[in-house]
Protein backbone atom coordinates (compact mmCIF):
# COMPACT_ATOMS: atom_id res chain seq x y z
CA UNK A 1 0.00 0.00 0.00
CA UNK A 2 1.29 3.45 -0.80
CA UNK A 3 2.60 5.83 1.85
CA UNK A 4 -0.24 8.26 1.15
CA UNK A 5 -2.97 5.63 1.53
CA UNK A 6 -1.45 4.52 4.83
CA UNK A 7 -1.30 8.06 6.13
CA UNK A 8 -5.00 8.56 5.46
CA UNK A 9 -6.18 4.99 6.02
CA UNK A 10 -4.55 4.21 9.36
CA UNK A 11 -6.02 7.13 11.33
CA UNK A 12 -9.48 6.24 9.95
CA UNK A 13 -9.06 2.64 11.08
CA UNK A 14 -7.89 3.83 14.51
CA UNK A 15 -10.94 6.09 14.80
CA UNK A 16 -13.29 3.27 13.84
CA UNK A 17 -11.74 0.94 16.43
CA UNK A 18 -11.93 3.54 19.21
CA UNK A 19 -15.57 4.39 18.44
CA UNK A 20 -16.45 0.70 18.33
CA UNK A 21 -14.73 0.05 21.68
CA UNK A 22 -16.44 3.10 23.20
CA UNK A 23 -19.83 1.85 22.00
CA UNK A 24 -19.25 -1.69 23.27
CA UNK A 25 -18.02 -0.56 26.69
CA UNK A 26 -21.04 1.72 27.17
CA UNK A 27 -23.41 -1.11 26.18
CA UNK A 28 -21.72 -3.98 28.06
CA UNK A 29 -21.22 -2.04 31.29
CA UNK A 30 -24.63 -0.39 30.93
CA UNK A 31 -23.14 3.05 31.66
CA UNK A 32 -25.94 5.61 32.01
CA UNK A 33 -25.85 8.46 29.43
CA UNK A 34 -25.43 11.16 32.13
CA UNK A 35 -22.07 9.53 32.97
CA UNK A 36 -20.88 8.52 29.50
CA UNK A 37 -23.13 8.60 26.44
CA UNK A 38 -22.40 6.19 23.62
CA UNK A 39 -21.24 7.46 20.23
CA UNK A 40 -24.67 6.82 18.73
CA UNK A 41 -26.35 9.05 21.29
CA UNK A 42 -23.77 11.79 20.78
CA UNK A 43 -24.43 11.70 17.05
CA UNK A 44 -28.20 11.72 17.63
CA UNK A 45 -27.83 14.73 19.95
CA UNK A 46 -25.67 16.46 17.38
CA UNK A 47 -28.46 16.06 14.84
CA UNK A 48 -31.33 16.81 17.23
CA UNK A 49 -29.66 19.97 18.62
CA UNK A 50 -28.11 20.91 15.31
CA UNK A 51 -29.74 24.32 14.93
CA UNK A 52 -28.79 25.37 18.47
CA UNK A 53 -25.25 24.00 18.20
CA UNK A 54 -24.78 25.42 14.73
CA UNK A 55 -25.73 28.90 15.96
CA UNK A 56 -23.25 28.57 18.80
CA UNK A 57 -20.55 27.25 16.50
CA UNK A 58 -21.00 30.30 14.28
CA UNK A 59 -20.66 32.61 17.28
CA UNK A 60 -17.45 30.93 18.42
CA UNK A 61 -16.01 30.73 14.92
CA UNK A 62 -16.73 34.39 14.25
CA UNK A 63 -14.89 35.40 17.39
CA UNK A 64 -12.05 33.01 16.60
CA UNK A 65 -11.77 34.41 13.10
CA UNK A 66 -11.83 38.01 14.29
CA UNK A 67 -9.28 37.26 16.99
CA UNK A 68 -7.10 35.49 14.45
CA UNK A 69 -7.25 38.37 11.98
CA UNK A 70 -6.40 40.89 14.69
CA UNK A 71 -3.56 38.65 15.89
CA UNK A 72 -2.26 38.18 12.36
CA UNK A 73 -2.26 41.87 11.47
CA UNK A 74 -1.26 43.01 14.95
CA UNK A 75 1.52 40.44 15.24
CA UNK A 76 2.98 41.14 11.82
CA UNK A 77 2.66 44.91 12.22
CA UNK A 78 4.31 44.82 15.64
CA UNK A 79 7.09 42.56 14.34
CA UNK A 80 7.76 45.00 11.49
CA UNK A 81 7.76 47.93 13.90
CA UNK A 82 10.16 46.07 16.23
CA UNK A 83 12.40 45.29 13.29
CA UNK A 84 12.45 48.88 12.06
CA UNK A 85 12.81 50.70 15.38
CA UNK A 86 15.08 48.96 17.83
CA UNK A 87 14.20 51.29 20.72
CA UNK A 88 10.53 50.50 20.20
CA UNK A 89 11.37 46.80 20.42
CA UNK A 90 13.39 47.26 23.61
CA UNK A 91 10.53 49.20 25.20
CA UNK A 92 7.71 46.82 24.36
CA UNK A 93 9.05 43.30 23.86
CA UNK A 94 9.19 42.35 27.56
CA UNK A 95 5.52 43.27 27.93
CA UNK A 96 4.56 41.21 24.91
CA UNK A 97 6.25 38.27 26.65
CA UNK A 98 4.46 38.99 29.92
CA UNK A 99 1.14 39.12 28.10
CA UNK A 100 1.93 35.74 26.65
CA UNK A 101 3.17 33.93 29.76
CA UNK A 102 0.33 35.09 32.05
CA UNK A 103 -2.28 32.32 31.87
CA UNK A 104 -5.23 33.56 29.87
CA UNK A 105 -7.69 31.72 32.16
CA UNK A 106 -6.58 34.05 34.92
CA UNK A 107 -6.81 37.18 32.79
CA UNK A 108 -10.22 36.46 31.25
CA UNK A 109 -12.38 37.21 34.35
CA UNK A 110 -10.63 40.54 34.73
CA UNK A 111 -11.18 41.48 31.10
CA UNK A 112 -14.85 40.59 31.53
CA UNK A 113 -15.13 43.16 34.26
CA UNK A 114 -13.63 46.00 32.24
CA UNK A 115 -14.83 45.24 28.74
CA UNK A 116 -18.27 44.47 27.31
CA UNK A 117 -18.58 40.72 27.00
CA UNK A 118 -18.09 40.25 23.22
CA UNK A 119 -15.09 42.57 23.27
CA UNK A 120 -13.57 40.73 26.23
CA UNK A 121 -13.87 37.39 24.44
CA UNK A 122 -12.28 38.89 21.37
CA UNK A 123 -9.47 40.37 23.45
CA UNK A 124 -8.76 36.95 24.94
CA UNK A 125 -8.59 35.32 21.52
CA UNK A 126 -6.22 38.05 20.41
CA UNK A 127 -3.92 37.94 23.43
CA UNK A 128 -3.38 34.21 23.11
CA UNK A 129 -2.93 34.22 19.35
CA UNK A 130 -0.81 37.26 18.59
CA UNK A 131 2.41 36.23 20.30
CA UNK A 132 3.39 33.32 18.06
CA UNK A 133 2.82 35.56 15.05
CA UNK A 134 4.98 38.28 16.60
CA UNK A 135 7.75 35.94 17.75
CA UNK A 136 7.96 33.95 14.52
CA UNK A 137 7.77 36.96 12.24
CA UNK A 138 10.45 38.72 14.29
CA UNK A 139 12.67 35.67 13.97
CA UNK A 140 12.09 35.58 10.22
CA UNK A 141 12.77 39.29 9.75
CA UNK A 142 16.01 39.01 11.70
CA UNK A 143 17.39 35.96 9.91
CA UNK A 144 17.73 37.40 6.42
CA UNK A 145 20.89 36.31 4.55
CA UNK A 146 23.40 39.08 5.34
CA UNK A 147 24.90 38.89 1.85
CA UNK A 148 21.49 39.69 0.40
CA UNK A 149 21.32 42.69 2.73
CA UNK A 150 24.77 43.72 1.47
CA UNK A 151 23.50 43.36 -2.09
CA UNK A 152 20.54 45.65 -1.34
CA UNK A 153 23.01 48.11 0.23
CA UNK A 154 25.17 47.99 -2.87
CA UNK A 155 22.20 49.05 -5.00
CA UNK A 156 21.33 51.76 -2.47
CA UNK A 157 17.95 50.28 -1.63
CA UNK A 158 15.77 52.30 0.75
CA UNK A 159 14.61 50.88 4.08
CA UNK A 160 11.18 50.41 2.61
CA UNK A 161 12.59 48.49 -0.39
CA UNK A 162 14.64 46.26 1.91
CA UNK A 163 11.57 45.56 4.02
CA UNK A 164 9.18 44.94 1.15
CA UNK A 165 11.46 43.14 -1.32
CA UNK A 166 13.75 41.29 1.05
CA UNK A 167 12.78 41.01 4.70
CA UNK A 168 9.08 40.25 4.35
CA UNK A 169 9.44 37.55 1.67
CA UNK A 170 12.35 36.04 3.59
CA UNK A 171 10.25 35.98 6.76
CA UNK A 172 7.21 34.46 5.05
CA UNK A 173 7.87 30.80 6.03
CA UNK A 174 8.26 31.68 9.72
CA UNK A 175 5.33 34.10 9.54
CA UNK A 176 3.10 31.36 8.13
CA UNK A 177 4.26 28.92 10.80
CA UNK A 178 3.27 31.53 13.39
CA UNK A 179 -0.13 31.99 11.77
CA UNK A 180 -0.73 28.24 11.82
CA UNK A 181 -0.16 28.19 15.57
CA UNK A 182 -2.22 31.36 16.02
CA UNK A 183 -5.25 29.78 14.30
CA UNK A 184 -5.51 27.04 16.89
CA UNK A 185 -4.69 29.39 19.75
CA UNK A 186 -7.33 31.95 18.86
CA UNK A 187 -9.94 29.18 19.11
CA UNK A 188 -8.55 28.28 22.54
CA UNK A 189 -8.61 31.93 23.59
CA UNK A 190 -12.21 32.34 22.46
CA UNK A 191 -13.27 29.16 24.29
CA UNK A 192 -11.50 30.12 27.52
CA UNK A 193 -13.13 33.53 27.52
CA UNK A 194 -16.55 32.07 26.78
CA UNK A 195 -16.22 29.62 29.65
CA UNK A 196 -15.21 32.45 31.95
CA UNK A 197 -18.07 34.60 30.67
CA UNK A 198 -20.45 31.63 30.79
CA UNK A 199 -20.01 31.27 34.52
CA UNK A 200 -20.93 34.95 34.75
CA UNK A 201 -24.17 34.09 33.01
CA UNK A 202 -23.75 35.48 29.52
CA UNK A 203 -22.78 34.25 26.07
CA UNK A 204 -24.02 31.85 23.48
CA UNK A 205 -20.91 30.32 21.90
CA UNK A 206 -20.08 26.64 21.84
CA UNK A 207 -17.96 26.80 24.99
CA UNK A 208 -20.88 28.42 26.78
CA UNK A 209 -23.08 25.52 25.58
CA UNK A 210 -20.60 23.08 27.07
CA UNK A 211 -20.58 24.87 30.42
CA UNK A 212 -24.37 25.17 30.40
CA UNK A 213 -24.87 21.51 29.46
CA UNK A 214 -22.51 20.56 32.27
CA UNK A 215 -24.70 22.32 34.83
CA UNK A 216 -27.76 20.58 33.43
CA UNK A 217 -26.04 17.19 33.30
CA UNK A 218 -26.79 17.10 29.57
CA UNK A 219 -23.63 15.07 28.92
CA UNK A 220 -24.50 13.99 25.34
CA UNK A 221 -24.78 17.63 24.31
CA UNK A 222 -21.44 18.37 25.99
CA UNK A 223 -19.88 15.68 23.86
CA UNK A 224 -21.61 16.92 20.73
CA UNK A 225 -20.38 20.49 21.34
CA UNK A 226 -16.88 19.24 22.11
CA UNK A 227 -16.87 17.26 18.88
CA UNK A 228 -17.82 20.37 16.92
CA UNK A 229 -15.10 22.39 18.64
CA UNK A 230 -12.47 19.81 17.75
CA UNK A 231 -13.67 19.65 14.17
CA UNK A 232 -13.47 23.44 13.99
CA UNK A 233 -9.89 23.33 15.30
CA UNK A 234 -8.91 20.67 12.78
CA UNK A 235 -10.53 22.64 9.95
CA UNK A 236 -8.66 25.81 10.95
CA UNK A 237 -5.39 23.89 11.00
CA UNK A 238 -6.00 22.40 7.56
CA UNK A 239 -7.02 25.69 5.96
CA UNK A 240 -3.93 27.46 7.31
CA UNK A 241 -1.63 24.58 6.35
CA UNK A 242 -3.03 24.62 2.84
CA UNK A 243 -2.52 28.39 2.58
CA UNK A 244 1.04 28.02 3.82
CA UNK A 245 1.71 25.24 1.33
CA UNK A 246 0.30 27.29 -1.55
CA UNK A 247 2.48 30.25 -0.66
CA UNK A 248 5.71 28.27 -0.27
CA UNK A 249 5.41 25.35 -2.64
CA UNK A 250 7.63 26.77 -5.36
CA UNK A 251 10.62 27.72 -3.28
CA UNK A 252 10.74 26.72 0.35
CA UNK A 253 12.32 23.44 1.44
CA UNK A 254 9.49 22.71 3.86
CA UNK A 255 6.89 22.64 1.09
CA UNK A 256 8.88 21.04 -1.71
CA UNK A 257 8.16 17.43 -2.47
CA UNK A 258 11.36 15.47 -2.78
CA UNK A 259 11.81 12.53 -5.09
CA UNK A 260 13.66 9.59 -3.71
Amino acid sequence: MSERALRIGLPVVTLALVVLAWDQIVRLCAIPPYVLPGPGLVLATLIADSSLLWQSLLVTLTITFEGFLLAAFGGVALAIAFNQWRLFEYSLYPYAVILQVTPIVAVAPLLLIYLPQPLAVLACAWIVAFFPVLANTTLGLNSVDHNLIALFDLYKASRWQVLWNLKLPAALPQMLAGLRIAGGLSLIGAVVAEIAAGSAGAGSGLAYRIAESGYRLNIPRMFAALLLLSLAGVAIFFVLSALSHLALRRWHESAVRRER
Binding site: D145, N147, L148, P169, A170, L172, R250, W251, H252
Partner: peptide, 8 residues
Protein backbone atom coordinates in the same frame (compact mmCIF):
# COMPACT_ATOMS: atom_id res chain seq x y z
CA UNK B 1 27.59 32.11 -2.44
CA UNK B 2 25.11 32.74 -5.26
CA UNK B 3 23.09 34.86 -2.78
CA UNK B 4 19.83 34.57 -4.70
CA UNK B 5 16.36 35.24 -3.35
CA UNK B 6 14.88 31.73 -3.08
CA UNK B 7 11.31 33.02 -3.49
CA UNK B 8 12.03 34.63 -6.85
Amino acid sequence: EPTLMPWA
